[in-house]
């Protein structure tokens, strides 16, 4: 259960980035979470409420954009999206691939803010 440390990093990054923008309040934060990032949305949501308490993010919403794994298949010379994380084979030709192009992301995409006009 390292999701609490993950959301604490989110809170630190967002509050620091917003500090100089005259931000009154953060309304929502959008996170991109890859299927191989090792974090679980439920645990993130649970930790988010605790970690945002007493900050400009208190009461804000956490939106999680789940990203599937995308591999590069050398045989097909193309990218392929995988349905799950139980098999790393090209869904078209079945060739195994260790060339992961998407799925490890754990990043803050955007923040919806309210600022003084």
């Amino acid at each position: 259960m390292h999701e609490l440390s993950i959301v604490q990093s989110v809170v630190t990054t967002v509050t620091e980035a917003m500090a100089e923008r005259g931000v009154v309040r953060v309304q929502s934060v959008r996170l991109r979470v890859g299927a191989l990032s090792g974090v679980v949305e439920g645990a993130l949501q649970f930790g988010y409420e605790i970690a945002t308490e007493g900050t400009i993010m208190e009461g804000s919403r956490l939106e999680v954009v789940a990203l599937p794994v995308v591999i590069y298949c050398g045989t097909c010379s193309s990218l392929a999206e995988l349905e799950g994380v139980q098999s790393f084979r090209c869904p078209t030709c079945g060739t195994p691939s260790g060339d992961i192009r998407q799925g490890r992301e754990l990043e803050i995409e955007s923040v919806e803010i309210e600022e003084a006009a």
Partner: peptide
């Protein structure tokens, strides 16, 4: 008066690490 808008951040959560 306040206005709402979306700010792109594109920052890795574990950037410091």
């Amino acid at each position: 008066m306040s206005t709402a808008r979306i700010v792109e951040l594109r920052k890795g959560v574990l950037k410091k690490n």
